[in-house]
């Protein structure tokens, strides 16, 4: 069924998606909170930048990331100066790429969830002595729970399905950057259709189950009274 290199690719893919989703929730929550509530002029431009990965070909994102992460790029020079060396063609590089690539899939559900809560619950919390931080933790986050579930599922699934960006900045190094989608590409190139079938089928079932979770879970969305 799966050989060692297939299992390595599956393990790497799950690790990449988990780390990426975790980072995206940490970065995306404050960003989504800001986007949902600010009246600043910057809301438009920053919202558009966050949404760019939705429309850009992965090769374009990959190309610019390659330049930025490379020895002459801003991020590459910074990592070199910090003694971390180059992150291109490494797992760290893949994580950075995936975070950028899946950003809108996490930020937008969160932004919608925070927007749907509105101002009122936070005003109520303030009149009940809750500081802004207290209100955020004990009112905004629990009320946005459906948004967090959607954001986690979409962020994870979208990272699993990534191909173009990985090829551009990660290459094809077994157990370091060779994820499932790349592995399938390799099998097809090598005419190993049986192997490709197993992996492609697994991806299909996985994606279906993820989307099923998302759509079946929509019903018990918490309301606001």
């Amino acid at each position: 069924m799966f050989d060692a290199s297939d299992l390595g690719a599956i393990w790497l893919t799950l690790k990449l998606a988990s780390v990426t989703t975790l980072i995206l929730l940490l970065v995306g929550t404050p960003l989504a909170w800001w986007l949902a509530r600010t009246r600043s002029w910057w809301r438009g431009p920053i919202g558009a930048v966050v949404a760019l990965p939705l429309v850009l070909p992965p090769t374009v994102i990959g190309f610019y990331l390659l330049l930025a992460l490379g020895p002459n790029g801003l991020i590459g020079q910074t990592t070199a100066a910090l003694g971390l060396g180059s992150v291109v063609f490494s797992f760290t590089g893949l994580v950075i790429g995936s975070v950028v690539y899946s950003l809108p899939f996490v930020v937008q559900p969160l932004q919608n969830a925070f927007g749907a809560i509105g101002q009122r619950p936070l005003e109520v919390a303030a009149t009940l002595r809750a500081s802004p931080w207290d209100s955020f933790i004990h009112v905004a986050l629990p009320l946005a729970r459906p948004g967090f579930i959607t954001a986690s599922i979409l962020g994870f699934a979208h990272t699993v399905g990534e191909f173009g960006v990985v090829l551009m900045i990660g290459g094809n190094i077994p157990d370091k950057t060779r994820v499932v989608s790349v592995q399938i590409f390799d099998h097809v190139e090598a005419m190993e259709y049986a192997q490709a079938h197993w992996l492609a089928g697994a991806m299909l079932v996985f994606s279906f189950l993820v989307l099923l979770m998302l759509y079946a879970g929509r019903r018990d969305k918490a309301g606001w009274s």
Binding site: R120, R145, A222, W224, S225
Partner: peptide
């Protein structure tokens, strides 16, 4: 507001749904 010792009742009850 959260440092003012006041109670506020809104037009809609605005209970926390969670």
């Amino acid at each position: 507001p959260h440092r003012r010792p006041l109670g506020y009742v809104f037009q809609e009850a605005s209970l926390f749904a969670h």
